[in-house]
Amino acid sequence: DETGKFLVLSLYDYQEKSPREVTMKKGDILTLLNSTNKDWWKVEVNGRQGFVPAAYVKFL
């Protein structure tokens, strides 16, 4: 199980638009929880879990 094993870097600021999403700032290091959807990845940032656009992050 690779859940929570990968870190990704936020390339852009992102403001959550729904309760299922999370806000991140450019340069944030996020824990990747799920990347099965090619468009939206589930991450943990600042103690919160939610989705961010996959195009806004990259693997470290």
Rank of each mutant, 00 (worst) to 15 (best):
M24V: 10
F6C: 15
D1M: 14
V45I: 15
D1C: 15
L32N: 00
G47E: 05
N46Q: 08
N34C: 13
Y12S: 10
R20F: 14
K5I: 12
T23Q: 04
W40S: 02
V43I: 08
T23M: 03
Q15S: 10
D28L: 05
T3H: 14
G47R: 04
F51M: 08
V57A: 02
K5L: 12
V52K: 01
N46D: 12
A55G: 11
D1H: 15
L33S: 02
N34P: 03
G4L: 11
E16I: 05
W40I: 02
M24Q: 01
Q49Y: 08
W41M: 04
K25Q: 10
K38E: 10
G27Y: 05
F51T: 01
S10V: 15
D13L: 03
V52W: 02
K17T: 12
L33I: 15
Y12V: 13
E2W: 08
K38A: 12
V57P: 00
L9S: 05
S10T: 08
K17F: 04
D13K: 02
L9C: 12
V22G: 01
L7C: 12
K42Q: 12
V43R: 00
T36A: 12
I29C: 08
Y12P: 01
W40G: 00
N34Y: 06
N37G: 10
M24A: 01
A54M: 04
V8A: 09
Y56F: 13
S35T: 11
K58Q: 15
R20M: 14
Q49E: 12
K42M: 15
L32C: 11
T23P: 06
M24I: 15
T3Y: 13
K42R: 10
L60V: 11
F51N: 03
I29P: 01
W40K: 01
L30I: 08
K38C: 11
V8E: 00
T31W: 12
D39N: 12
E44S: 09
I29G: 00
N37M: 08
T36R: 10
V43D: 00
E21S: 06
A55L: 10
G27D: 05
K42H: 11
W40F: 07
A54Q: 05
W40V: 01
V52N: 00
K38T: 10
F59L: 15
S10R: 04
G27R: 02
V43E: 00
Q49I: 15
E44D: 09
K26C: 08
K17S: 11
E16H: 08
V43M: 01
S18W: 06
D1R: 03
L11W: 04
V43A: 01
N46T: 05
V45R: 11
L30F: 05
V57C: 13
L9P: 00
V43Q: 00
T3V: 12
V22L: 14
K25M: 09
F6K: 12
G47F: 04
E16C: 12
W40H: 02
G4W: 10
G4P: 14
E16S: 15
R20K: 12
T36F: 09
G47N: 08
G50K: 01
N37S: 10
D28H: 06
F59M: 15
N46L: 07
Q15E: 15
P19Y: 09
T23S: 15
Y14G: 01
T3R: 09
A55Q: 12
L7W: 11
G4K: 14
N37C: 10
E16N: 07
G47W: 02
T31M: 12
D1K: 06
D1T: 14
T3K: 13
K17R: 13
T23C: 07
Y56H: 07
P19I: 10
K17P: 04
S35H: 10
L9F: 09
A54N: 02
K38R: 12
N37V: 05
G27M: 02
L32V: 12
P19R: 08
K5H: 13
F59V: 15
D13R: 02
L60S: 07
E21N: 05
L7R: 09
K17M: 11
G50R: 01
E21R: 04
Y12G: 07
K58F: 10
D28Q: 13
K5P: 14
D28P: 01
N34L: 08
E21A: 06
V45M: 11
Y14K: 01
Y14R: 02
F6W: 14
A54P: 03
Q49W: 07
T31E: 09
P53E: 03
L60K: 05
M24E: 00
R48P: 02
R20Y: 14
N37Q: 08
V8G: 08
V45A: 11
V22P: 01
R48V: 09
S35M: 14
E16M: 12
P53D: 02
W41N: 00
K5E: 10
R48A: 07
K26E: 07
W41I: 07
F51E: 03
P19A: 11
R48W: 04
Y14W: 10
V52F: 02
K17G: 08
S10D: 01
F59P: 14
E16K: 14
K26T: 06
S35R: 12
Q15T: 14
D28K: 04
Q15V: 15
R20A: 13
R48D: 04
T3Q: 14
K42D: 03
T36D: 15
W40R: 02
N46E: 10
L32E: 00
Q49H: 08
L9H: 05
V8Y: 09
G47C: 06
L60A: 07
M24D: 01
E16A: 15
S18P: 03
Q49D: 06
S18A: 09
E2Y: 10
S18Q: 07
D39M: 12
L11N: 03
L7D: 03
P53H: 03
D39W: 15
F51I: 06
K38I: 09
S35V: 09
V57R: 00
K58C: 15
K42E: 15
G4Y: 12
L9R: 08
P19C: 10
E2V: 14
G50L: 03
K38V: 10
T23N: 06
L7P: 04
Y56N: 06
F6S: 12
K38H: 10
L60Q: 07
K58L: 12
E2R: 11
V8P: 00
F51H: 05
V22E: 01
P19Q: 10
F59D: 07
S10A: 15
K5M: 11
Y14C: 05
Y14T: 01
K26P: 04
W41S: 02
K42P: 01
P53W: 04
V8T: 03
I29D: 00
D39E: 12
D28A: 07
K5S: 10
K25L: 08
K38L: 09
T31Q: 12
K5Y: 12
Y56E: 03
W41E: 00
N37Y: 08
N46G: 12
K26S: 07
D13H: 05
F51Y: 15
R48F: 07
L30K: 00
G27A: 01
P19L: 09
P53M: 04
P19T: 10
Y12L: 10
D1W: 13
P53I: 04
R48I: 09
I29R: 05
L30P: 01
T23I: 04
D13W: 03
F6D: 10
I29S: 04
L30E: 00
L32S: 01
K5G: 11
N37T: 06
G4S: 13
I29T: 07
P19H: 10
E2G: 14
L7Y: 14
L9W: 06
V45S: 11
L32H: 01
I29A: 03
V22I: 14
G4I: 13
L30S: 02
Q15M: 13
Y14A: 02
L60G: 04
G50C: 03
L7S: 07
D28G: 03
A55K: 15
E16Q: 13
Y56Q: 06
L7H: 10
Q15L: 12
L30Q: 01
G50Q: 01
K25A: 09
A54R: 10
S10M: 05
V57F: 04
W41A: 04
S10E: 01
E2A: 14
K5D: 10
K5W: 11
G50A: 02
T31C: 12
T3C: 15
L32Q: 00
G47A: 05
L33C: 08
Y14E: 02
D13Q: 03
Q49F: 07
N37K: 07
E21K: 05
F51V: 07
K25T: 09
S10F: 06
Y12H: 14
V8K: 01
F6R: 15
S10H: 04
L33T: 04
Q15R: 09
E44C: 11
L11G: 04
T36Y: 09
V57S: 00
K38P: 13
F51C: 11
T23H: 04
L11C: 10
K5V: 13
